[in-house]
Amino acid sequence: QEMGAEEVEAFLTHLAVAGMVSASTQNQALSALLFLYKEVLLIDLPWLDNVVRAKQSQRLPSVLTRTEVRSVLTRMSGIYGLMANLLYGTGMRLMECVRLRVKDVDFERREILIRDGKGAKDRVTMLPESLTGLLQTYLQQRRALFDDDTRLCKVSVYLPDALARKYPNAATDWVWQYIFPSGSFSVDPRSGAERRHHIDEKLLQRAMKKAVQASGIAKLATPHTLRHSFATHLLDSGYDIRTVQELLGHADVST
């Protein structure tokens, strides 16, 4: 109760200099002090609201050149290669790709509808012509797995509660199936049903890490880097920034 602005600022400075903690940790400590005084000690200290919060650093995303992208993608095959190509060719986020369902792909219009993206927003992105044939061939194999699961009576797929109630038979319908399913069955803790979930995103992350290392690229590149590279290469090719913003699903053009 005897501390003032000087002591609080000294404490936060100690965290930054001696503790070398991040800006977010410093701000968390300040928020804890605000809560302590206002909610626990019930002391109103106007000066505490004026203590300057630490400014978080702005880091530029890592971007691969076109040559580096080709080098990485040529070292990825099978389902991981297809997923990585989709990330680069569409600008999807990792989890948006992992959660794709059969009905979300429109081959005639060469579009992919991304449902419930970041911020719970839907958007449409393009499906590159170069990937159309690969994805169609893969979906034929995926359909065979669906048919096998149907014979085992384990074809039911997870649907959000509202959809499951509105369309009670949709869970066993082909169009609602995940495009990239898990290689094994698991018990859904929400319903107790044994079913295939979507593929684990960590598997793609590991596959890309190996491809980046094999390429000898001295950059920190993850599946999300393919999204940044997609946007950068479109802008380099003369695409309008507003168009790229819509494809990425960004609310603010500055991001």
Rank of each mutant, 00 (worst) to 15 (best):
A120G: 00
D106E: 09
V175H: 11
D104T: 02
I179T: 02
H250P: 09
Y138C: 08
F146C: 01
Q1H: 11
G183H: 10
T25L: 06
V102N: 03
K103P: 03
L247P: 03
L33F: 09
G4R: 12
K219Q: 11
L204W: 07
E6C: 03
T65K: 02
L134N: 09
T222H: 13
V105G: 04
A18L: 12
S184L: 04
M208I: 14
A29T: 13
V63A: 04
L48Q: 11
T232V: 07
R109C: 00
L152I: 01
R206L: 14
D236G: 07
D188N: 15
V63R: 04
Y178M: 06
I241S: 07
Y88H: 11
E2G: 11
S184K: 12
R206I: 09
P181V: 13
S156Y: 05
E68Y: 02
I79R: 15
I241G: 06
Q141T: 14
T132S: 13
L152S: 11
T13K: 13
K121G: 05
Y239L: 08
H228T: 10
A10D: 14
L60T: 09
L82K: 09
A5S: 14
F107I: 12
A221C: 13
S215V: 07
R190E: 14
T243G: 00
F230C: 03
K209R: 15
P160R: 14
S77F: 11
I199F: 08
S191A: 10
L159Q: 09
T67E: 15
V155L: 10
D148W: 09
I114T: 00
A32D: 12
R66P: 00
T137I: 06
R151I: 07
R242W: 03
K38E: 15
L204G: 06
E108S: 01
E201I: 02
L34T: 03
Y80S: 05
Q140W: 05
Y37R: 11
